[in-house]
């Protein structure tokens, strides 16, 4: 029973990491840039929901706030690409890295200026409720996180496989030049991918805030999610989720069975081992071009 609870809480954490990692990979695959502000996107999504729903602020019903936050983060992602990042088209990777790191700082301070730097709890209907399966006591938040992640994964999968836009997104990320030749509007697709990354980040943020408090530095979690994305295989969407789950699972077990402090090191230790043993990650999509 003890182990089962560790697994469930690990999976729940892992789902949040996995969703942030998914955002990293979405943007990386499409635009070959890494968005280091992805964790801060998550934090912002959480704070927007909190701002709408908490009685200290606006006090809207929870579900309306969720929809508003997801919509706003989607629009924010789209506009960010349209207004800021598109101007960096053709610049070096380093420029993009520095820009997104700076973007993370900006988001963090804006969130601090609006909502303060103290940790706050989201007034979520799923926080603090227990569910019992026989003798097993699980947090409602953990169960919901896992269920929502599974549903979101299935929806994203269907979107990328079944819809014309989804296939075009894959096409543009596999061969940008050819997509351009075929008349696929690559720039608009990039903006839409940023919107999608914003939406996924908002969902991750809401889930994350449902199981604890958030403050403007919560986005630093993104570094762990980045490690998860690399472990899973940077460039593979299922890999990102899998990497997130692995990192999520390793933490509670390291905390339980290893001396204090090792649980913080464990994900990065795993990252180092992975880079040595299997540098492309667990699920990698490496394709060589034939002439």
């Amino acid at each position: 029973m003890d182990i089962l609870q560790l697994i469930v809480s690990g999976l729940a954490n892992g789902c949040v990491y996995g969703l942030i990692a998914l955002g990293f990979v979405l943007i990386y695959k499409a635009t070959e840039a890494v968005n280091f502000a992805q964790g801060d996107f998550m934090m912002l999504g959480a704070f927007i929901t909190l701002g709408f729903t908490n009685t200290d602020y606006i006090g809207l019903p929870f579900w309306i706030s969720v929809i508003l936050a997801i919509g706003l983060m989607g629009i924010l992602g789209y506009l960010l690409d349209l207004v800021v990042l598109r101007r960096m088209f053709g610049q070096s990777q380093v420029a993009m890295v520095i820009l997104t790191i700076a973007l993370g700082f900006v988001i963090r301070f804006i969130a601090g200026a609006i909502w303060g730097h103290e940790p706050q709890a989201l007034e979520s209907p799923i926080a603090g409720v227990d569910v019992r399966f026989g003798g097993l006591v699980l947090g409602m938040d953990e169960v919901v996180i896992i269920v929502v992640t599974v549903i979101l994964t299935i929806l994203l999968y269907l979107f990328f496989i079944r819809t014309k836009l989804g296939v075009a997104m894959q096409a543009a990320s596999q061969n940008q030049l050819a997509a351009y030749y075929m008349g696929i509007p690559v720039k608009r697709i990039h903006s839409l991918i940023w919107a999608l990354a914003g939406i996924v980040a908002a969902i991750a943020g809401i889930l994350f805030a449902s199981k604890g408090t958030i403050d403007p530095t919560a986005g630093l979690l993104g570094i762990k999610a980045f490690a998860a994305a690399v472990i899973g295989g940077f460039g593979s969407l299922p890999g990102a989720l899998l990497g997130g789950l692995v990192v999520g699972l390793i933490e509670p077990f390291a905390a339980r069975y290893l001396p204090a402090g090792y649980s913080q090191i464990a994900p990065y230790l795993l990252l180092v081992v992975m880079l040595i043993v299997r540098p492309h990650g667990i699920l990698s999509q490496i394709q060589t071009k034939k002439v």
Partner: peptide, 24 residues
């Protein structure tokens, strides 16, 4: 339509999806 040098297909999409992208 421009058929580029060196094929430039979409390597991880199926053949049919590649063709459908031509009609985007």
């Amino acid at each position: 339509v421009h058929v580029p040098e060196g094929r430039e297909i979409f390597p991880i999409l199926s053949v049919e999806d590649n063709l459908k992208m031509g009609a985007y």
